[in-house]
Each structure stands twice: as C-alpha cells, then as structure tokens.
Amino acid sequence: MKDFVRTIYFLITASVLLTNCNMTKEFDVNIPISQVLGVYCNFYPDSVWKAQVFKLGNITDSIYGNSLLYVDDAEVKLFCNNEFQENLINVGSGIYISTNNSKPIENKKYYLEIFKEDYPSIVSTTETLPPLIKIDSIILYDSLQAEFSFFYVNSKKEEGDMQLDVFFENKEDLAILTTYPSFLLTNGYTGWDCYKYMYSLLKNEMNFLINNNETSNEFQISFTSNNFFEFYETVSIQENSQSGIISYFAGNIKSNISSGLGLFAGINYVYIDIDTIPIR
C-alpha cells in the first residue's frame, strides 16, 4: 500500500513539473551585417535592357517591404563583347534601364558591372541570348502518353490534363540543348514550371504535361541558360526547406554574380496556342 501511494504521489508531481516546462526561448547570437550587392536582370530578344539592383538586408529586419533593400545610387555598366556599351540609368525602386532603348542581340556576349560606395563591386558572368531552336511539329494528346517522372505514373488524370509533345527540326539542334539545358513552360496565369533537360540525345522531342483548365490557352516555351535553371532550382529548395533540424542542408542560392547575389541571364522563347493544334 505504501509503495502504491508513493507511486501515485510521484506521478502527480511529475505531471505538474512537466506541464510547467517552456521549451522555446530566444537565442541570442551576434550576426554582423554584411555589405553585399545583388542584381536581377533577365534579358529577352525584344526587351529593352532593364536591371534591378538591391542590397543584402539584416537577417532580423522585417521581411515585408523591399524598398529598404533597393539601391538607387549605384553605377550600372553594361558591356557587349568585352567593350563598354552604356550606363543604365536609375528610374527608382532599384531599377536601371537603357536610355538608348538598346535590346539584346543574338550571338553577342553581355555582362554587367555594378559599383556602389562602401560596397564591394559585383560582376556578372558573360551571357548570351540562347538561340531559338526551330520547332518541327507539335502534337497535343488529351491523355498522358509518356512517363514524366515516377510521381506521375499512377496518378489519376485530372480534368484538363493534356500532353504537349514538341518535336525539334534537326538533331544537330540538340547539341544546343545540352548547352542551354533548361526549359520553361508557362502560361500567363500559372507561373513558371521549370524543367531541366533530362532526355537522351537520341530523342528530338520534349514532352510537357499541361492542364487546359485555365482560361489562357497560350503557352510559352523558353530556352534559358544553366545559370538560370540552377538559380531557380536553389530558390525552390530554400523556400521549401523546413526550419530547424531538417534545414541542415539548405544552402545558398546559386548565383552567377561574382561577389554578389542575384541572376543575370538571357531567355529566348516561342509561343504556342493550343487552340490551333488538333487533339489526338
């Protein structure tokens, strides 16, 4: 009896103690502020040069409102084929544009240099407009023909699911695909779906899974550089990684800006209107 009473008393005491434990508290760590610049600049065949310059913010600053991070007093230099082309001019909100209305031209090599007082200067890698690969034909299926990845093999078809097969004209063009291996398929409403070229050189086709439930039937296939793909891949990983113990392997965003952050990449594209393609 004595042992039983002793046990009950102990268990009551234990539960009282356990319920009063607070397991979270602030972690005091001194993180010095780093002076780092960054730039986002995607260039297209028919667009005027435009870049957005920003700086790294303090880790404990508010996450809303990027105006504090925009840099409007930097010097942004554009180079073409290793020769200085022009200074891009600031129009506010960290945006710098070409006042000559100059646009990227295929087969020319471009890079940016950015300077700001009290900050290390940053330089992008040399980039070009990816060549447009000629499309030979397009086939639209109302059912899935190919295995897109293991995750789609046994999933049920959702209403509107279709497969878009794009065939390219020459096998020689495939050599370009290995140099510019990433593709983007978007429509105006659903945003980016980024695919990396994973098919062997024996095939000259690409298969896309699309859903025609959206009101827009126009799709854009974009050809970009590997730097572009790696940037967005690492953004996706970092944004999806959970906090705490699982985030051990979350790393930095892949950037082609030396001593800086961001992305400088060319994008070429074609539009496809699926309303004009017969369904098989």
Binding site: I59, I63, L69, I253, L261
Partner: peptide, 23 residues
C-alpha cells in the same frame, strides 16, 4: 551549425525578403 546572416528578396515573391544568405 550554419545560420543565415542576411536576407534579400526573390523575384518570385515581390513583397517578401524571403531568401537567405547563409554563413
């Protein structure tokens, strides 16, 4: 451990400085 030492925005998230720079 590795901690983030800075924050900047992502072009995909216009209103949030949601990307980290790690040490």
């Amino acid at each position: 451990l590795t901690l983030p030492i800075g924050r900047y925005y992502s072009p995909a998230s216009e209103n949030e400085a949601s990307l980290f720079l790690y040490s």
